[in-house]
Design a protein around this nucleic acid. Structure first.
Lengths: 179, 179
DNA sequence: GTCCTATATAGGACTTTTCAAGTATGAGTT
DNA sequence: AACTCATACTTGAAAAGTCCTATATAGGAC
């Protein structure tokens, strides 16, 4: 139940409404987590019932009320426990790599098409990462900036790898496969 | 339902039993997909019922029977359709980055501990990737090798990034934050 | 002889995630 | 006046994924 900790974490930085959280998962933290809004609101209900967060209704002029949630001591404690617990092994799921892995039977042209498509997606996501504002004056900002840098570095690595893979396919076609 | 395509893909390379698939997801394709054993067997039942795969019982001496599954024309067609369909945007879930992102309040020492732990996991997974055999004499092998290389490149990038992040944290501690 | 590991499959019970639709408010637009 | 958009939250249903236990066979270690 990692979403639980991602939400507690975001609330530890500052109070959020469900809607705010939804936008965070679509933007500022999208490079490492995503959640559907229906999941977010249901989780917030649970967290509130358990006493991990509090809820305050904030009236707005010209817009629906916001239900703004803050971390309680209990919630803060639960977050800390998670932050201190051992990391478990990641089990990546990468649909793009899966597709590439099995695409051999469709031939080199199709592989190139898949690589082109991936290049476009990675370029786009890199641009999206670049729009996320960052500074590094507090420790929080230093590490948040680092996670952003992680995304950017991996995007660059992917782009380089795409070029290399294109070359490996071309090389195979020329009849001089390189290992 | 990506697991479905991963299974169809593996069966397109050669017939597998449920057990074989489980080992593939724990080994040769673990760098891009994983599935629990119970999920695999249930999916195989579905695929068989739908006619996407066939099942042949193979008796073994000294071991339980194997139920070996092969792709049918229908299954092959479904796999091809998926391979030709547009890639959808990836929504990464990275528990390690999530943890780091929120770990600021625990201080620099704890951040270093998280980075150390991550370094160990990445080093281990890189070693595991290196044990996967690879050659590049067929097109299938060229691209399968490329997905392996993807994992290795990203592991290297992560290790470099860990070192940089350690330095950013140290630099912050010395009172000279770099952006 | 008991224990551990590996092979091989099955199923219950549950949690997590996604998809889809719907409610409501008000601002700006055509 | 009807429409579209953004904000803000809710609910039903299904799909996907996890955890755990159970069944059965057999080799090797202790």
């Amino acid at each position: 139940m990692k979403l639980r900790y991602a939400v507690l974490g975001l609330l530890s930085l500052e109070p959020h409404s469900g809607y705010d959280l939804g936008r965070a998962f679509a933007g500022s933290v999208a490079h490492f987590w995503y959640a559907d809004q229906s999941q977010i609101y249901r989780l917030l209900d649970d967290l509130d019932a358990e006493g991990a967060i509090t809820t305050e209704v904030v009236r707005q002029n010209g817009r629906p009320d916001r239900r703004v949630h803050s971390l309680t001591e209990t919630g803060r404690h639960e977050l800390d426990d998670w932050l201190r617990s051992p990391l478990d092994v990641q089990r990546p799921k990468n649909a793009f790599l899966a597709r590439l892995f099995f695409a051999g039977s469709l031939g080199p042209d199709h592989i190139r098409r898949i690589l082109d498509e991936a290049e476009q997606l990675v370029t786009d996501s890199r641009e999206q990462l670049r729009t996320i504002e960052h500074s590094a004056t507090t420790l929080d900002e230093v590490i948040q900036n680092a996670t952003l840098q992680f995304g950017l570095s991996h995007a660059e690595t992917t782009l380089t790898w795409i070029a290399e893979t294109r070359e490996a396919v071309a090389s195979f076609e020329r009849g001089t496969p390189d290992d």
